[in-house]
Design a protein around this nucleic acid. Structure first.
Lengths: 122, 122
DNA sequence: CCGACATATCAGCCGTTTCTGTTACGTTAC
DNA sequence: GTAACGTAACAGAAACGGCTGATATGTCGG
């Protein structure tokens, strides 16, 4: 609710997305719990919320919140099976994104870890 | 400060980086100014800080801070030329990362834009 | 229908990130 | 050496993101 730019309702694949949107998208991956969830789903294929809660060892409400975010941004999708909702990675390119980042990180891990400049984490 | 996993001091390229580090890395891309800077550098090849300040239309100190972050995390590198410092994208995979995100975004742009769940932006 | 289970949502608080303006540092020109 | 230019660093204030705990929604069993 701040942007001066108007996003076309029909973004063409060719036209690069608004930097704003790209940044927001990356922020969707900018939380360690969300990354762990994605990695777990990638490894296991499909998991229920309860299974994820156990696997990551965090509060149910926390996991559920992060799932909502991931789902909303299109990183994962869930389907109801009885009382459970089972989640999986929504698109193979999401996995690519993660692998690419890890590959880059492999060479810079020390730098990134040590970076306390702008963001206490960066 | 919650993970039960122990980070090996010598992460192998094979072993996936710590989720913490991956998330931090993505956060490095989670700001629209930083994304704009990267896109500009990708398009122009190499730019000085002043040129970037003009191009993005933001305060010099803001741009410089973001450059510090990008440089620190290995997204860009700068070299001094006289009184100027000229920056460029440090690794082709960074561009890949951006393109991959934009490609994914092309299909989800509306969802992501509308997402006000956990992160007011997400 | 009621209780139990599985998941989602909400509100308030707190920590982190970012912005703004100012100041410090390095380099070149005079 | 001093002034001017280009860039980086810093501090305080403001905004945002995320956590916790409680509550709502939906589904199944009896």
């Amino acid at each position: 609710m701040a942007d001066a730019e108007f996003a076309s309702p029909f973004a063409l694949p060719e036209s690069p997305a608004e930097p704003d949107l790209v940044a927001k998208y990356f922020r969707g991956l900018g939380d360690s719990t969300r990354v762990r969830i994605l990695e777990l789903l990638e490894a296991e294929g499909e998991l229920s919320v309860t299974e994820l809660v156990i696997a990551v060892g965090e509060a149910q409400s926390k996991v559920s919140n992060h799932l909502a975010c991931l789902r909303w941004c299109g990183f994962v999708e869930g389907r109801r099976v009885g009382r459970q909702v089972r989640y999986r990675v929504a698109d193979g390119r999401v996995s690519e994104l993660l692998r690419l980042a890890q590959s880059l990180l492999a060479g810079n891990a020390e730098h990134v870890a040590a970076c306390t400049r702008i963001e206490a984490r960066c």
